[in-house]
Amino acid sequence: MKKVLIVDDSAFVRMSLQVLLRKNGFQVVGEAEDGNMAIKKYVECQPDIVTMDITMPECSGIDALRKIMKFDPNAKVVMISSMGQEKMVREAMIAGAKSFLLKPYNEERVVKTLQQIAEMVVFV
């Protein structure tokens, strides 16, 4: 069972993702509502995958992604955001994101993407 950390400033989105992921065989090992908490939780929980929003207070998802990638170059982070501008997508991928999903997300697409990322072998 793959361990997932959910990062989003919306409690509703975190709860929705948690229900969706548990229903589809993932283990949710933590949640964070901003980038700073995401970094702390990543270190504590050592998840297999992180779902990360981009626009959050305190520390953005892209800034948190960069810090997580410095801590663990093998981190598997999937950005899930309503911000689908090409510049932000490109910035997230350059920072180390393994995939990018747009909100509102499709349950089947989220599950399929996370399953593929979970199986991905990362070479640093």
Rank of each mutant, 00 (worst) to 15 (best):
K98D: 06
V111Y: 07
G61E: 03
E31M: 05
L21H: 03
D72W: 00
I6K: 03
I49H: 03
I80F: 10
G30P: 00
K87H: 05
L20Q: 02
A64I: 02
M79V: 09
G96Y: 00
G96P: 11
S16Y: 07
P57L: 03
I39T: 07
A75C: 11
L17G: 04
A38E: 03
C45I: 07
D63C: 09
Y42L: 05
K103I: 00
A92Y: 14
I6G: 02
I80W: 04
G84I: 08
V7M: 05
V43S: 06
V29F: 00
D8A: 15
T55Q: 08
V78D: 08
V89I: 14
A64M: 06
D34Q: 14
P47R: 00
R109G: 13
L101G: 07
E108G: 15
R14T: 07
N24C: 03
V4K: 01
A32Q: 05
E91D: 10
D53Q: 03
K23H: 08
Q46E: 12
L20Y: 14
V121C: 13
S99V: 06
S60N: 01
M37G: 08
G61I: 05
C45Y: 14
N106W: 08
G96R: 01
Q115I: 10
S16N: 15
S10K: 11
V124P: 10
I68H: 05
I6H: 05
A64P: 03
M83G: 15
V121D: 09
G25F: 02
E86G: 15
I94V: 13
N24F: 04
M15V: 15
D72G: 02
N106V: 09
C45G: 06
I6M: 04
E86F: 08
L101K: 07
A97T: 01
G61T: 04
M15L: 14
R66M: 07
R109C: 13
L20H: 05
T113G: 12
F123I: 11
L21S: 02
K112M: 09
F100L: 09
A97F: 00
F71K: 10
V122L: 03
S60C: 01
T113K: 14
M56C: 01
L101Q: 10
V124M: 15
Q46M: 12
Q116D: 12
F12L: 05
L5D: 12
C45H: 09
V43P: 03
V111H: 04
I6D: 04
G84A: 06
K103D: 04
D34L: 09
M83K: 13
E44M: 13
I6C: 03
G35Q: 01
E91K: 10
D34E: 11
A32C: 07
K98F: 08
E119G: 11
P47T: 00
L21Y: 05
E107C: 09
E31A: 07
A92N: 10
T51L: 02
A11Y: 08
E107Q: 15
C45W: 06
D8W: 15
N24K: 04
D48W: 05
I80N: 06
V111R: 01
D53P: 01
E31K: 11
I117N: 13
E86I: 14
R109Y: 08
V19L: 13
E119Y: 14
D34K: 02
G35V: 01
V124Q: 12
M120H: 09
G35K: 01
V7Y: 07
V77G: 08
S99H: 14
